[in-house]
């Protein structure tokens, strides 16, 4: 027993001593800053106002190049989302022209969007998107917030399980949008690329997409780049995980139930085994 404790102690000490050394050598100034999100943590939920602002930024800026193929107009009024009424969602849909058909003459036709329609893609196909964007394909937004992360390595990733950190994707997107800075001296940026502090390799095809004051906010939130980035990241998280609110709410109920059930079983077990030495 003692020997085992010594072994454990040695391993633990090695891990603890190793951690700061690794952090120091890595030079983590490129790691995205961990923002505070309303949907983080066990009781987190989306902020409707933030999702509505994020939707506005997405619609007016991002959607001109990025598709969101798993996103439907009906999602705008579903519970746990930006909280638009069905009428508002219908109104948004009707502002877009959707190709439908064929009609009884065998021809395709344009009609205003409906709730059941997919969010219209800005380009007819990937190749068209590439041609319009200097050869780079703007990634689809539907699950992008879950397809990106900032890697912390060991032992940070173990801590993340306890702090329930699942916001690596949104932190990265927020950092990327605010990470357009002048390249450090001596860095040669390839033609058609742009310097970004947080993009892997630092050279990104997307030009700085948004600046202060570009989108009008009607709820009094300051129209700054930082707020735009934060709001559109939150909106992308909702697009990627539309049932997050329900998941955390049901999760709490399940945990409470299982905790009480486990407690009852523990005492049942104790009673059953009371007279048996084991």
């Amino acid at each position: 027993m003692i020997k085992r404790s010594i072994l454990f102690g040695a391993v633990a000490a090695a891990l603890l001593l190793g951690a700061p050394a690794r952090a120091a050598e890595g030079g983590h100034d490129d790691l995205p800053h961990r923002e505070s999100w309303s949907f983080a943590g066990p009781f987190g939920s989306f902020d409707q106002g933030q999702l509505q602002r994020g939707f506005k930024v997405f619609r007016e800026v991002c959607a001109s190049c990025h598709s969101a193929n798993f996103f439907y107009f009906r999602n705008l009024s579903q519970p746990g989302g930006p909280g638009f009424s069905e009428a508002q969602a219908k109104a948004v849909a009707s502002e877009y022209q959707i190709t439908d058909g064929p009609n009884d003459q065998g021809e395709m036709f344009q009609r205003p969007g409906r709730l059941s329609d997919q969010w219209p893609a800005p380009f007819p196909n990937d190749q068209a998107a590439r041609v319009a964007n200097g050869g780079a394909l703007p990634p689809d937004f539907s699950v992008l917030a879950k397809a990106r992360a900032s890697h912390v390595g060991f032992p940070g990733f173990i801590l993340d399980a306890f702090t329930q950190y699942q916001e690596g994707g949104v932190d990265y997107i927020h950092a990327l949008l605010t990470g357009y800075v002048d390249p450090p001296e001596g860095t040669k940026v390839q033609p058609g690329l742009h310097y970004n502090k947080y993009f892997p390799g630092h050279q990104i095809a997307m030009p700085k997409p948004i600046s202060d004051g570009q989108v009008e906010y009607t709820d009094g939130t300051p129209a700054t780049l930082d707020n735009y980035s934060r709001d559109v990241s939150a909106f992308m998280m909702w697009m990627a995980e539309p049932h997050l609110d329900a998941r955390k709410r049901i999760g709490f109920q399940v945990m409470i139930f299982l905790f009480v059930f486990a407690g009852l079983l523990y005492f049942t077990k104790k009673k059953v085994w009371k007279d048996v030495a084991h």
């Binding site: 993340d160 699942q166 998941r247």
Partner: peptide, 10 residues
């Protein structure tokens, strides 16, 4: 359940 509901993509 902790994984399913709180860190499903961990």
């Amino acid at each position: 359940s902790y994984f399913i509901f709180y860190i499903p993509n961990y």
